[in-house]
Design a protein around this nucleic acid. Structure first.
Lengths: 231, 231
DNA sequence: CGCGGCTTTGATGTTCATCAAGTAAAGTGG
DNA sequence: CCACTTTACTTGATGAACATCAAAGCCGCG
């Protein structure tokens, strides 16, 4: 190694095999020259709807929400997701501008790579292209399936779904701090804030969950699953 | 040209630049060896949910619906689409099995290419990979956006949306024959069959549309757009 | 300590699904 | 080609699900 070169931390990055599989060490080092890491505090916006896309971004740590503003001006949350699931916006290869916004629900680290460089890699390394395509495709599929699932449930089923989603997919724990407000849950599953709260209260009365402000404990996960499926 | 070889109709195919851009003539001829054309009558199933994916398929002519069966057994229509918009299922690069079914709403021609061959091309031709990725990405985006749009509308807004979709995207005409039953419209926009019919009747009474069985004439497209947006 | 935002709950009305009953249309077999 | 069956469509009546409105409690923050 030439010690005049800046050391490339990408080579040792735990995540390089997940997002940038099929790249040899040379390409990884090159990647370093075209990337930077950015830190976002809880609440900060990472991508803004309508903004020009010039980078490929992926989440290294934290939690984000993907959302858009509906024609009538309300916020519509498309999905809430952890690292790796969120590989940039989906539109990077098909659109010039972001279709959706992304913001941090927890402090988050984002790896930002110049999009032109990714495209260059794409052209000269088919295996890399296929690996990335497969990841983006998986994420897209997941979003579509989730949206369809939610749509076809009733009110209690949707709330049960969200609680299970946080428990199983986001926190891997039956006790967790809600990373979103009640209103955001409502925006996520498409119902009114009042009814989200009402439904949570009912779950509490039936001792399916315990609620202490933002902290939630899932007591009876089986019942929750039954409600979610039936809903 | 060697006239012992079977002539390759792909070379002259009008659609090769749309789906298979960035392929040289050699690759296109090779493609011919790995593809066949299939014809589906109205109502026939092209892909079946759960079936193993071994081909890359795209629609040359006709009209199809993409749908799935919900856990509770009902049909949920994800989108209805014309050629080029429908490039196989979206899951070909991320899943082993079809996540959704596809069936023909009109007589349809489908071009079927062995998936392994597509993957091979992918690996050795980055430009082709990028072109295809971009197409798949566009289609995915469209589906997600459509699903979100529908979800956020009320009953009349949804029916207005469907009528506009058929008018502007599918038939490019204000007079058209509905390619689906009333029940299928209901499965598409997530409401009951009875209310789809009721809403169509209201539009008829208000002289926004004329209805003759399956034939629909959009009389006041502006009013329809207002209803769709407000909804 | 007081203001503003988030949360909670009840009361009310709207929107929508469901049920039922009837009509039209489209297959189906003799 | 007609009687028969089945499937799609239509409309009204009813009740359930849900949004909206309003009022009050809570909590953090200046």
């Amino acid at each position: 190694m030439n010690d005049k070169k800046k050391p490339c931390n990408c080579v040792e990055c735990d995540f390089k095999d997940i997002v940038f599989s099929y790249l040899d060490e040379g390409s990884i080092e090159e990647l370093c020259l075209h990337k930077e890491e950015q830190f976002f505090r809880k609440g900060e916006v990472i991508n803004h709807e309508g903004e020009k896309i010039s980078n490929f971004k992926y989440l290294k740590s934290g939690l984000v929400k993907l959302y858009r503003r509906t024609p009538s001006g309300e916020e519509q949350i498309i999905t809430i997701t952890r690292p790796f699931e969120f590989v940039s916006n989906m539109s990077i290869f098909s659109e010039e501008r972001y279709q959706y916004s992304v913001s941090a629900l927890e402090d988050s680290e984002v790896c930002v790579v110049q999009l032109d460089f990714i495209k260059e890699l794409f052209l000269r390394n088919g295996a890399f292209a296929m690996g990335l395509l497969s990841r983006i495709s998986t994420i897209n599929d997941k979003i579509i399936r989730q949206t369809l699932d939610i749509r076809q449930k009733n009110l209690v089923g949707r709330v049960a779904f969200v609680l299970l989603y946080f428990t199983n997919e986001i926190f891997n724990s039956r006790v967790f701090d809600l990373p979103v407000s009640r209103k955001e849950i409502a925006d996520y599953i498409g119902m009114s804030t009042a009814n989200v709260i009402r439904t949570l209260s009912e779950f509490r009365k039936e001792e399916i969950i315990r609620v202490f402000g933002k902290t939630i404990e899932v007591v009876d996960i089986n019942k929750l699953e039954i409600i979610s499926k039936r809903g």
